[in-house]
Design a protein around this nucleic acid. Sequence first.
DNA 1: GGGCTCGCGTTTACGGCGTAAACGAGGGGG
DNA 2: CCCCCTCGTTTACGCCGTAAACGCGAGCCC
Lengths: 262, 262
Amino acid sequence: MERNEDTVPMRRPDPDSPEARGGAAAVLPAGPPVTGRAPLDRRRILGAAIEFIDRNGLSALTMRRLGASLGVEAMALYRYVPGREQLLDGVVETVIDELYGDPDVHMRAAGGWQDFLQRLAHGVRRIALAHPEVFPLVATRPPAAPWVRPPLRSLRWVESLLTALVDSGFSADAAVAAYRAYSSFLLGHLLLEVSQKGVQISPEDAPEGVPDTGTDLSQYPLVVELEDLLSQDESAAEFEEALENLLGRLETVRREGRAPGE
Amino acid sequence: MERNEDTVPMRRPDPDSPEARGGAAAVLPAGPPVTGRAPLDRRRILGAAIEFIDRNGLSALTMRRLGASLGVEAMALYRYVPGREQLLDGVVETVIDELYGDPDVHMRAAGGWQDFLQRLAHGVRRIALAHPEVFPLVATRPPAAPWVRPPLRSLRWVESLLTALVDSGFSADAAVAAYRAYSSFLLGHLLLEVSQKGVQISPEDAPEGVPDTGTDLSQYPLVVELEDLLSQDESAAEFEEALENLLGRLETVRREGRAPGE
DNA sequence: GGGCTCGCGTTTACGGCGTAAACGAGGGGG
DNA sequence: CCCCCTCGTTTACGCCGTAAACGCGAGCCC
């Protein structure tokens, strides 16, 4: 066991964590930050919904409670949102639209396609970490078209990404394959990361003297032996590692100018 | 890439599709297949819930309707299941327990760790494709412990997997890292695959003469140009390709006997 | 055999949900 | 002045999850 201590040299907290950035992923600067009574509008409703989910969890969001958090009856929301389902669609769209406000993510691949994908990936990760309760929604809400894949649920970003790849020498086939591999990578890593984060927090009650006597692990000796390692959170490093690997793999695909499967 | 060869020789429809297998992933052989009135029990309830979700979608599942599908009032279910949430937990557990009945998936790595991981991956994929409406539940339900990562939500499988890796020469670090990378890969790929499959089906209504005039694509020329490619379903090949790549990457990690990030 | 108990499904009831529909209040233009 | 348009409220309906009381048939003890 040589790998705890300070083997990891200077990986401060986590470059994508919310506190490492000056609230750059804040929800909405919608005019004055009044929390009292202001004229309702769609943006304000969606912002309040995101804040509500961040604070209380997705399952606690109801039309009545969201209305109450805005100082309004539930039915008032229906003037601006057709219904609860479309409200959630709007939440998902608003959350990923935070990418446009992220100064480290660009829509055009000025620094090459690898820089583009890297910045985009970290931007999405920042959003996931800033809204862990919302991200499962981003992941599972049915997309508009079969080729709009979570978590990049916006045509503009798909167009950006494909453009960056094709302009950098990817064939059409390879660009599409890269888009799909990239989406799968982001979705898998980030969904697991936020769900893991949620689990660590949620059993906050019953902090007894003996920790974690919930289940009997005696039948799983290796799990017991590796429990420390398994509990460690190496998400940031693993994300980086897997991302680098993916980019490397895509580079060979690009060079050989063919789809990766053949 | 020397490690496929004849592992996947004839890729006609899809080796993991439900119809390509003789119902091997059927839900329950719980005694006589009577659908009428039989004594209620937990297994029968969970089986009915899975069938209900497969047929009508997760959002249609209510205690009352599930009761009705069993010829019983909703409250009768509460003798066997504490509540709706725990019912869903049971559904998830039951679905992944289908792995134990899969003759192509083994709990011990008799044919080497790569064979083990490959069989397991395809087993999980078969389950995902057999129950596309259930899989998002498998992916997003909070796990029991932070180190039980979807989609392999069972301590027995985690123990199996780690054992296979450690026995094959992975260091403890490397085995844990491999477990995490493998989980992310499975989750990302399969969640996207089933969600894509769901989207193709759901807008079944309004098959007008002009197809897909729903949204204006004029601002996204590359998306338009690549629309055919983007709509193609290459899930099986991409899954195989990404899995092979992951295994290859893990092999170098194993050989060098260190965690992959350093 | 008679009555008692107990396992199991039903009935009833309650508060909360999403949302359709009718209803005001308040203000700006004819 | 009055009308009507905008926007939030009130009321109402059917469905939801589930607590609690109930009923009923089978088995058992005496």
